[in-house]
Design a protein around this nucleic acid. Structure first.
Lengths: 181, 181
DNA sequence: GTTTGATATATCATTTTGATATATAGTAGC
DNA sequence: GCTACTATATATCAAAATGATATATCAAAC
């Protein structure tokens, strides 16, 4: 039943840093954490509504002005829930790589198809790695933000793994071309 | 709307290797491809039903015996769909690591909590890496199966990345303990 | 003989995804 | 000034995935 609503934790986490609107939350997710977690308007807005009813977040700002954006602030109760989750030893870590899925079934077609798929993956990763490295460099310089260390750690995870991916791409193409491990 | 039903491709891929029942499909997913893709009874059985109606798969075996398992075979049409997907350059590759999400929001609590979370991750990865390495060794010896090369490539992707994870764990713990990058 | 665990299929509520709808504000080009 | 485009902002919904539960059979263990 997909028991835990993880989007709630993402929202509470972001609100523990600063007050945000639903739209802001989406922007934060897309720019900072999208490489290891996703969120969409389709679950952000309903989650905010539900969490407001449960007193985990409160609306702030001028809600009298209808056309103005609604900003949310985390409550003490919300912060408690966030901290409980952070201390919970359970953690769902999963990879979902369609490129690997296609490679697994690559035997159905000529190996050139698999090589092309690996090359497409390689190019995508190269671009993303560049972005992540820039992000890391930036964080090294902005030590005034107390959370920069945590942001850096997640970004450096990306750098390390993406570099490993690229090494694998070279090896994998070689194995396919030679037809032996 | 989550446009593409990826589980269909997983099933067609597995059926391109051999005839299988829904239960068998679940077992194959869990044992061979679960580290980069998942499947559940909740989508496998309905998918088989839908694909049978669309003539992508056919029931085989003794369906007259009610209590016997239903085995499915891929059709020419199904094989065509599978090959089309393999050649489609689109590929959804995503990481969903709750450990990184928790680390990103680690500033809400003492750094010891984040260190513990990294250590839990580290232990899990160490165990999984051992399994993947064993799987790789096994595949090196069973070259009689034409698909062993493709299986090996996906497993070796896991080995490479998991080793990178472990290197990152050591670095990350050090950074947290010292409080500087 | 009974309990346990594997086999096998099916169903369902919850959650997520990703697309679409709607409307306003700003701004760049002509 | 007018128009087109883009960003902001919220909301909704069908489709898909998740993961739990229900049900039943059969073989092995004890």
């Amino acid at each position: 039943m997909a028991r835990e609503k993880k989007i709630d934790m993402v929202i509470l986490g972001l609100l523990s840093h600063e007050d945000l609107s639903g739209y802001d939350i989406k922007k934060r997710i897309d720019s900072m954490i999208s490489f290891f977690w996703k969120g969409s308007f389709g679950n952000i807005y309903p989650a905010l509504k539900d969490m407001e009813e449960a007193d985990l977040v409160k609306k702030t700002g001028t809600s009298d002005n209808v056309r103005e954006k609604m900003t949310y602030r985390i409550s003490d109760k919300g912060l408690k829930i966030l901290k409980q989750w952070l201390q919970d030893e359970q953690a769902a870590n999963e990879l979902r790589y369609e490129t690997l899925l296609k490679l697994f079934f690559g035997g159905a077609l000529d190996k050139s198809v698999s090589i092309t798929n690996i090359e497409l993956f390689e190019q995508k990763i190269k671009g993303d790695l560049k972005l992540l490295k820039g992000y890391c460099e930036n964080l090294k310089e902005h030590t005034e933000n107390a959370d920069h260390l945590y942001y850096y750690l997640t970004a450096s995870f990306g750098v390390e793994t993406y570099e490993a991916y690229l090494k694998w791409c070279i090896k994998a193409k070689k194995i396919l071309k030679n037809g032996v491990i």
